[in-house]
Amino acid sequence: MPGAVRRNPALVALPLAAILPFFVDNNYVFHILVVAGIYMVLSMSLNLLIGYTGLFSFGHAAFYGTGAYASALLSLGCGLPFPAAFLASGLLTAVFGVTVAFPALRLKTIFLAIATLGLNEIVRLFLTNLDDVTGGPAGLPGIPLPDLWLVRLEQPQDFYLAAIVFVTAAYWALSNLLLKRHGRALKAIRDDEIAAKAVGVNITSYKVAVFGISAFFAGLAGSFFAHYITYISPDSFGLSESFAIIAMVALGGMGDLRGSLIGAFLLCVIPEVFRSLHDFRELIYGFTIMLIVRMLPGGIAGWTRNPGGWLRRRRNDDSRPADPRREAES
């Protein structure tokens, strides 16, 4: 554990955030930070697919929504206590992710992106139309606040502390995974699938596993969201939600977990800091994405590793895949 901490300053920084309540007493601030925490887990889990494995899953909100609805229904319908509903919704979403993975194995690049967008819409439409179960467009109100045996989470400040535990645990588990042979195998698949096969990586099982793990964490995030807001509706899990998570991953840096923490934090907090610019918030958001992809292809994390690198990149960049069209034809 100490070794892991030394390698991972984020493991120190995240728990340190727990001292904030000693200095700040503002529910609005805590609310923003809880939401940021949920997006941190969402963008880390999406980064696993897009950034680490090169699987362009563009419908992440489908997993997020599945977790939220599963958890809400398990608590409201079956009366499951929060901890059980939380874990169960993660596992159910993981099962859904694995189910999606099998057909997704056959698709690459833009075709996978298109199919997962379609999946996102299908999930949202089912949530909207299965009125009897999901409450239809009106959604599900009255989701119980989490009761964690000894403590009950009620105030945004309570949720803030819970979110710190949640994000830290997710980050710890994922960074352990990704630093070791599994993470390396995922990057190998992203870099060159044929070469990865040639050294004995079972591509199928890795892709299925990574879909399952990614969906698991997205499902947990959905559950956390549902029990925090206590009301969910299909509109929270549409394409624009998926696009927002993609933007966070791209801003933070593809294939960098710490980057996802930063990306989610910035895109949640910056718009709130500049409340006076409220009308221009979406505009700034959109331009940020456009500029980041163009100027900082490695995101903020890539930039901190190699500041100024993007200036040199233009001239001789042999890091790019030779040519996508060649791949398409072969």
Binding site: K187, A188, D191, I213, S319
Partner: peptide
């Protein structure tokens, strides 16, 4: 066909991949 974005050492470690046996949970 190398793993271009990975380090030289990590490329070789990928070779050991099939001789290693820790599972996802143990790593996580």
């Amino acid at each position: 066909r190398l793993f271009g974005s990975m380090t030289v050492l990590d490329n070789v470690k990928m070779g050991f991949h099939c001789r290693a046996s820790t599972g996802w949970l143990s790593a996580a």
